[in-house]
């Protein structure tokens, strides 16, 4: 019985081994924050690193959709996976982001999402359920990604 309680409390604490918004990451001030702060919105979670070429290409697009749809309730959350935060800061200086940037240098959240490649993106609906998943960023598929988000925003 005790064990079950322990298990339940662990689950409640957000130890999840699946893509969800119940994960702890760091914000720019190095404070642990939960992704659940974006619950209620359509959330586009993107995993990126400074050394990843396609990630660089995805930033202007993410800036664009954030600006275009934030009023309708879209939140773009880009989780950086560099172990060295300085490299991430250098990247952000070159490619500024107007969306939420979070940090997961330990990679434990990335592990829970079971990334297959870099970058990887996950779309959550307003109920916080995972509905879509993409590996890589392809400029010629950007319109397709955008349409998926628009559909979620309309739900």
């Amino acid at each position: 019985m005790k064990k079950i309680w322990l298990l339940l409390s662990l689950m409640a604490a957000g130890v999840q081994a699946a893509p969800s918004l119940d994960h702890q990451v760091f914000n720019a001030q190095n404070q642990a924050v939960s992704l659940s702060e974006f619950k209620g919105k359509v959330v586009y979670v993107d995993f990126w690193a400074s050394w990843c070429g396609p990630c660089r290409k995805s930033f202007p697009w993410m800036n664009e959709i954030q600006t275009k749809y934030q009023d309708q309730g879209l939140a773009v959350v880009a989780i950086n996976l560099d172990t060295d935060n300085e490299l991430a800061q250098e990247f952000l200086k070159q490619v500024p982001a107007n969306f939420s940037v979070r940090f997961n240098p330990e990679g434990d959240v990335a592990r829970s999402f079971d990334l297959l490649g870099m970058p990887s993106s996950f779309m959550f609906n307003r109920q916080g359920q995972l509905v879509q998943h993409h590996v890589g960023f392809y400029a010629d598929k950007a319109a397709e990604y955008e349409q998926e988000l628009v559909n979620l925003l309309k739900e």
């Binding site: 400074s50 070429g53 660089r56 290409k57 060295d84 300085e86 490299l87 250098e90 990247f91 070159q94």
Partner: peptide, 17 residues
């Protein structure tokens, strides 16, 4: 060394793909 690591990456990154 820290400087080296960053600047090395910076040079690579500043190249347009």
């Amino acid at each position: 060394c820290g400087l080296f690591a960053t600047s090395g990456h910076a040079t690579e990154l500043s190249k347009k793909a």
